[in-house]
Design a protein around this nucleic acid. Structure first.
Lengths: 210, 210, 210, 210
DNA sequence: GATGAATGAGATTTCATTCAT
DNA sequence: CATGAATGAAATCTCATTCAT
């Protein structure tokens, strides 16, 4: 936070404000969902008035899009670069990709956004389109790419990559969603790493040529 | 109320009228979710007045529980019996179980309830508790049971059955949820059977002793 | 109001409610204008809650349209019939028409609606279109018709009837509007009848062949 | 404030910058009305910040008064001088007065202020009082004066000059207001001159001794 | 049993005005 | 002089629930 000691005094406040709003918004959206989050609460959590929110974001939907843009899109880009740069076996790439995803999204608040979007997509088509275009489609494409790579190199069985991708993503997404829905049937935190290992193990033994 | 003295004992009363209510409620809950469904609309769809709803169900939550009880619990029971009665290999049991589930829940409106509960569990803890106790826990137990059966018989690798069950359920649940969320990234209906086959194939090759 | 003494008791309330709402709405719309009238106040004035208003009228605009429909349209129809039935000289018809208009609209609260619409037409295009189609156009057509009748019979000079109509309406409309705008420059009530007589006199001496 | 001791007495200070503000304000007030005009928009249109507006005008009402003072009052003075200086027949004076008025107010944006004031007078009594005192009363007095002049000289019939003035102004004001309200029933621009001629013709033939 | 009119708390969004810099 | 971020009251519209008939 104070990593840049020479930042001019007079710019700090202006730059900081939107960040505080997005942080508060992320917390509340994740906790309650899109429709059930009141802008009143977001404002109070950020320590500003309701009107201030509208100074920065012209509607609840725009606020949400900004939350996604600021928090999720960088991770997508990072993941894309990780895949591009990798030169080992596809199994290792798969392992690395899922582990990284888990560290960056699964373990953080961001995992709540997946649940939120799944939950509210049909009631907010604009949001759904946005999230699909910016997050789901690129993410999907990466898994498909990995499968194609593995099949081409002979490491993996020749499954349909599009269908296979959806099946393989499912346990990761469900793991993220469970964290944010039924507290009553939650996987204990200490088991989550075990879940991830089991998942990778089960996925690979199903994918690899035996 | 008791105007028909010969009414058979085992016939549940109040079932005739409520059936229409529950049908309308199921449709709307699945289409819009719990919070976003207006009782106004449920009443209109059922062809009764809003007040009448309250004659049969004391609140929106009670109405929802009734929908679940009437539609989902019988399927759970049925599935339990199917497993009890099965005597073939565990792989075949797994295949039969998932296929049956897909026919009875995945392909019907009921699949929407999974998404709904995932979406709204955290905002309606009572509902979450109810759904967990009545649906999730029993369902989970069946998968765990199948895994134990397979491991005990030597057919399957010795994975942790609790964790494995959650991983294995995930693609089934996601498939149901996708149907009801992003229309924009929906799997085409014609591919759904292909998805199921791929899933069973990938799951089994990961589970079976090689 | 009590002209139908045998009206069944149990329908009275239901029928009466919308009337009370429209009365309150007319009062407030006339007093404050469309945009500045708060539905809260309309509800309170009618002795009901805000929600009740929406039971009968789905939006502020619909409420306003209902006010116009209920109060103004009958007068328009009546005036049309009056003209159809008249068989005397056009000068006498003109006198009768303007006098009647003054009695029915000018002297009542309805005169406030003219001002309101003039004031807010450009900010509420839907309302403007509605009011033009239902009130202004028919009213205009009547004046044009009278002028045509007078010109055809040789009583009046051959002016352009469309343009003449607008000029002739103007003092009547202004008289109505003044009543509801500047209290500070208002024509005293006792002078209003004198205004009307002067207007008819000046108009006719301008129209009649000398 | 008195820092420039040699500044000529008669030069109004603070006039250079405010001119842009008043132009922007006139445009927007005419287009949308008083209440519906946002100071945000005025500031943006003038190319300054919202705070700057308050540097020059202490409130929205003061800004509006300044717009009227700067734009309308000079015309009133001019018209007064025109009447004083005129030496021909009263009919010719009337014609000249109305034609000039039409050129200077009717055809310009200023015509919008009449509608604005009529529309919002009752909701902003201070503004109404100001406008009445500064614009309406003097204008009215001029027409009354003309009528008195014509009656005294024997050119015109002995009508009540106060009442006659209001009737005679009405079509002029309405013509200005129509331009700014219902676009849907607007008099086409090419007909406006014809309207003016018709009006003068009808007015004079009603006023002159036959 | 059945109705549907009535409620009122609460949600998003707007905007004149203030004030620290 | 000038800025523009911040405020907070207010306005329209929604909906689960109640209750007299």
């Amino acid at each position: 936070m104070m990593s840049c000691p020479f930042k001019p005094r007079w710019e700090r406040r202006k730059d900081a404000r939107p960040q505080e709003l997005l942080l508060a918004a992320l917390d509340l959206f994740v906790e309650r969902g899109f429709a059930a989050t009141r802008l009143d609460d977001v404002a109070r959590a950020a320590g500003v008035s309701k009107g201030t929110l509208y100074l920065y974001y012209s509607s609840k939907e725009e606020l949400f899009k900004a939350v996604v843009r600021e928090n999720v899109l960088p991770l997508i880009d990072e993941a894309g670069e990780l895949i591009q740069a990798f030169s080992g076996s596809t199994a290792d790439l798969f392992r690395l990709f899922m582990t990284t995803w888990w560290e960056r999204m699964g373990k953080t608040k961001l995992s709540g956004l997946s649940k939120l979007m799944m939950a509210e997509a049909s009631n907010f088509p604009d949001l759904a389109q946005f999230y699909h275009d910016e997050v789901i489609a690129p993410g999907d494409a990466m898994i498909v790419g990995m499968l194609r790579r593995g099949i081409a190199s002979g490491e993996m069985r020749a499954i349909d990559p599009e269908i296979g991708a959806k099946i393989l993503i499912a346990p990761m997404i469900m793991m993220m969603m469970w964290k944010h829905s039924y507290s009553v049937c939650q996987i204990p935190n200490k088991d989550l790493d075990s879940y991830l290992e089991h998942y990778i193990d089960m996925a690979l033994h199903g994918l690899l040529v035996r």
